[in-house]
Design a protein around this nucleic acid. Sequence first.
DNA 1: CGGTGTCTTGACGGTACTCAAAATCTGTGG
DNA 2: CCACAGATTTTGAGTACCGTCAAGACACCG
Lengths: 248, 248
Amino acid sequence: MNPVDSTRASETCAPTSGPVACAKCGSRVAGICAALDMAGLEEISHETRRTQVNPRDVLYHEGDSAQSVVMLTRGVAKLTRQMPDGRQQVLGFRFAGDILGFTTRRTFLSDAEMLTEGQVCRISRRDFEGMLARFPATQRRLIELCSQELAETQEQLVTVGRRQAEQRVAAFLITLAEAARRRNQPHDVLDMPMTRAEIGDLLGLALETVSRAFTALKKRGLVKEPGGHKVELPDIPALAALADGDMD
Amino acid sequence: MNPVDSTRASETCAPTSGPVACAKCGSRVAGICAALDMAGLEEISHETRRTQVNPRDVLYHEGDSAQSVVMLTRGVAKLTRQMPDGRQQVLGFRFAGDILGFTTRRTFLSDAEMLTEGQVCRISRRDFEGMLARFPATQRRLIELCSQELAETQEQLVTVGRRQAEQRVAAFLITLAEAARRRNQPHDVLDMPMTRAEIGDLLGLALETVSRAFTALKKRGLVKEPGGHKVELPDIPALAALADGDMD
DNA sequence: CGGTGTCTTGACGGTACTCAAAATCTGTGG
DNA sequence: CCACAGATTTTGAGTACCGTCAAGACACCG
């Protein structure tokens, strides 16, 4: 069977810490299915297609008809907007438990591309809307997730609008640690699968500037890179202080 | 009676084009109450306090306990985050029909301050949640509004992250025109109550840079300022093209 | 072990920031 | 209606931060 083929989800899509635990995806993550009870999970599982995805796989394109919603259950993705001159703005990175591609518009508002291998659950927009209608708790949960995403994007705006290069990179590392914490992963040694260029496209910086900022942060002893797409943050409070401009 | 005193809303808070028209606030605006029927409007009107507000009035502060939700029914407000060094980032401007201060968190995530005189409807968070519970349509509407706000913030991120000064100002003017269009106002001559400094704090620019960009846009014939906090945009398509970098 | 992609470092230039001063606008009161 | 004060805007000059270009180092993978 082709690894990219969709398969009936015999286990559910829900990486959840909610009312019920998920048989296979046992990670304690706040997906929307956290709002479903056992019966809801059983029902939804028949309407989702689970797919293995690989680095550089595109989950959807900006402008495509938004016919389905994607639940990321494993791996890291980036949401991007392409500029006419070929550059891109990364709107944010997304992790296990996040919902991608939900919109009230007709088409997707960004590209979504995997950075790592991983796993996604797709559900048709029709079925997704049906779930919202039948399980009111999922609607509240969606509001929560949307509101959370808005808060993160606003924080991102502060970073890009009012911080300088080294502060921006520090702020990025803090949000990365925060994302790990929410997924109950160790947050002093983090996976960091994104390249300097992608971090630059997130922060509104050239990749060389990101590289110089990393070098500077390492000199300060605030960052270590043991290799293998890992970062170590020995002093998160100091890093946060730097991001907020409380030191230099 | 003190003009800042709250008054029982004998008419509703809803500036709406929804199922019913609002007796006093007849503007066709997409507030959340657009999702309410006549009975719902009647019920909600008893739980809201309508207030006259003036320029520089603060609707709430970042960090304050988020005990109420504010519906802006007239006027323009700005949402800001204060930086430790005294500068600020404007997260966005808000207009009649917008909801301010809704969050799933315990406290507000930004300051909200009026730029013009106007009118707001306050509802306690308790009652707001009650409304969501009793009128499912308002929940869907809230998802729509939240999703819309997210899209606008992402667009803002693209502007700040990947455009240069003149393009940023052009993009700002386009969103201003777009906001006017949504409120069914003329979108070639717009109210622009914000100062150069506030526009700079929105776009991540110094106020002088904003001023220079306006001068340049006027030289190109893409912007006119007739005075009285108005802007005229004689060629919106050309302005949009400039914002997207399709010309220089 | 070679090839490719990523990262680092250096040199230079440009865009936008800072500081400063003049000009314009706005509202107030004579 | 005009004068005045404060706020806002404009314009100029100098500078700093970061972008661009380029070359070399490093890491990863077949």
